[in-house]
């Protein structure tokens, strides 16, 4: 118990003393997670609109696939992308392995099914009168999609937050593809894993608190937006 409370005291010092190493790790984590979330949104949101607003053969199957991929284990994504960008991989020449870009690629794939699926749900659960109204007013597919984006904006924002939450908190992809290189690819979660295995609880605890704080801030912002709407 005393050991834990000593660690907590050191952790508080690290946080409130604005320790450069701690905040450097936080910054790396945020850069990587935000980039991956943005990339996954740029692909996932239009993809979800495309699926939601069209009827085609195999739509049900695609939904099942997306649902399944939401539960994709991070280490499996790490493994696949490692095979792709590792030296012997198809994209090995790009030198992405053990770089932030490598982590971003893996985490984009991790967030993509979540963002796509939750956006799809947000659009499909719009009031059925929405689609009828767009049709009767002469809305083209593109205009209807744009309107759907706006009308379902809170649900879509929640999808983005869920995607961000998934990538900022994951450790498998960042560890396998980033390599946990100090000052370069060390993220909050990989640092916590490393420090814990070394028996250094203080730094891990500080990062854990800051990780929760990030989650709180992001979700608080979403909550505030919902209340305003």
């Amino acid at each position: 118990m005393g050991y834990l409370s000593d660690s907590a005291a050191v952790a508080a010092d690290l946080i409130f003393g604005f320790d450069p190493e701690v905040y450097g790790i936080v910054l790396t984590s945020l850069k990587v997670s935000v980039s991956a979330t943005v990339a996954a949104s740029l692909i996932g949101v239009p993809l979800a609109l495309l699926i939601a607003l069209n009827n085609f053969w195999g739509k049900g199957l695609l939904r099942l696939l997306l649902n399944t991929l939401m539960a994709l284990p991070t280490v499996v994504v790490g493994l696949f992308v490692y095979a792709l960008i590792g030296r012997a991989g198809a994209l090995g020449g790009l030198g992405l392995l053990f770089t932030p870009a490598g982590i971003i690629l893996g985490e984009t794939l991790l967030a993509l099914p979540i963002i796509t699926n939750l956006t799809l749900v947000a659009v499909e659960t719009l009031d059925p009168r929405f689609f009828k109204t767009c049709r009767s007013l002469g809305g083209s597919a593109v205009r209807t999609a744009r309107a759907a984006l706006y009308e379902a904006r809170l649900g879509i924002l929640a999808a983005l937050v869920a995607g961000f939450g998934r990538v900022v908190a994951e450790v498998g992809v960042a560890m396998i593809l980033g390599g946990n290189i100090k000052g370069f690819t060390r993220t909050m979660t990989t640092a916590i894993a490393l420090e814990t295995s070394k028996g250094e609880f203080a730094l891990g605890l500080a990062l854990g608190v800051l990780l929760l704080l990030v989650a709180l801030l992001v979700n608080g912002a979403l909550f505030a937006l919902r209340r305003r709407a």
Binding site: K132, S136, G139, E151
Partner: peptide, 25 residues
Amino acid sequence: IGILDQHPYLFDTTVRANVEWGLRA
């Protein structure tokens, strides 16, 4: 054909933007 529903769906925007929607479309 113009349609007026018993419970019309209005877009979550201003009155003007709602009325302009079909014209823009």
